[in-house]
Simulated assay, not measured.
Amino acid sequence: IVTDGVFSMDGDLPPLPEIVDLAERFDAVVMVDDAHASGVMGKNGRGTPDHFGVVDRVPIQIGTLSKAVGSIGGYAASTQSLRDYLVSVARPFLFSSSHPPSVTATCLAAIDVLETEPELIEKLWSNARFFKEGLKKLGFDTGVSETPITPVIVGDTQKAQAFSAQLFEEGVFALAIGFPTVPKGKERLRTIVSAGHTEKDLEKALKKFRKVGRRLGII
């Protein structure tokens, strides 16, 4: 059973404990793609299985090092036997050049930061809550997001593109997402804050969202 840890467009979470229960009932294996959860969810950013307390029941956890970790590459965390198997047969591993030492050093340093500076993750979540609540108070539809990934659902591709373009002119970058990446009627802007934003930054962004949203008749 394969699932995302955090769904990239809606920012919601899977019912991972129930998925694990189902897998164990039918003697199946669970694999979690934590590309959007590594460095964000769980203690010190260890991911969605840690967030739900089912690390020992998820045999395979994969993810990227190019998002929250801020480098490039990825990882597959599993058993030694699966690791040996992937090294022997995985095409991306067999037919790719290895990363230069500088990339490896960057990844290790970023993981050290996650382990020793948990306040950065706390700041990320504080910023996410502040921004998400601000959008809701303005009347925007943020869908079912439970994470820092926060959609602003517009419901029309052209309007979403216009919203994105006009926000950019105001100094705010929020990417427009349309069909078929998301269902028709769910076209949106996809926003995400970082631990590097200040409350002043977010207040400024919310003012621009209000200005452009009213201009386009979205709120």
Rank of each mutant, 00 (worst) to 15 (best):
V55I: 15
D33R: 06
V32C: 04
G53L: 07
D50I: 04
I62D: 07
S38L: 14
I62L: 11
E24K: 09
G45M: 02
V40N: 02
Q61T: 14
D27P: 06
R25W: 12
A23S: 10
G73Y: 09
Q61F: 05
T79F: 13
A37H: 03
A23F: 06
R57Q: 12
R25L: 13
K43A: 15
I62V: 14
D50K: 03
M41W: 06
A35Y: 05
G63K: 00
V40I: 14
I19S: 00
T48A: 07
V32Q: 02
N44F: 15
D56L: 04
D27N: 15
V29M: 14
L22G: 07
K43M: 12
D27E: 09
V58N: 00
I19A: 02
V69S: 04
S66E: 08
R57E: 15
S66R: 03
G42W: 04
A77F: 14
D21H: 06
K67D: 14
V29A: 09
A68I: 06
F52Q: 02
G70W: 12
V58P: 01
S71I: 07
Q61R: 06
T48D: 09
L65Y: 10
T79N: 11
G45H: 04
F26S: 09
D33Y: 07
G73S: 12
V40Q: 01
A23Y: 05
S38W: 08
V40S: 03
I62R: 05
V29I: 14
R25N: 13
G42E: 05
G73K: 01
F26A: 08
G42L: 03
R57F: 15
R57A: 08
M31T: 13
V58H: 05
P17F: 04
P15G: 11
G39Y: 03
P15R: 10
T64R: 03
I72G: 12
K67F: 13
A77T: 12
P17S: 04
D34P: 05
S66V: 12
D56T: 09
P15L: 12
A37Y: 00
V55L: 06
D33S: 07
I19E: 00
V69C: 10
I62F: 08
A77N: 09
R57G: 06
V32Y: 01
L22W: 10
V40R: 01
T79P: 01
V29S: 08
E24G: 15
D56Y: 08
A76W: 06
V32N: 02
I72N: 14
K43I: 13
M31Q: 09
A68D: 05
V30D: 00
Y75L: 10
P59F: 07
V29G: 02
M41I: 08
V29W: 11
F26C: 14
P17H: 07
F26N: 13
V69A: 07
A35P: 01
V58K: 01
V55Y: 04
I62Q: 02
V69G: 01
R46W: 10
E18C: 09
G63P: 02
P59T: 10
A28Y: 13
L16N: 00
E18K: 08
K43P: 07
D27I: 07
V54T: 13
G45S: 09
A35I: 11
I62N: 04
A28G: 14
A76Y: 10
I19Y: 03
G74V: 09
V55W: 02
A76L: 13
F52L: 04
P49K: 00
P49Q: 02
P59W: 00
A35Q: 14
P49A: 08
A37F: 07
V54N: 03
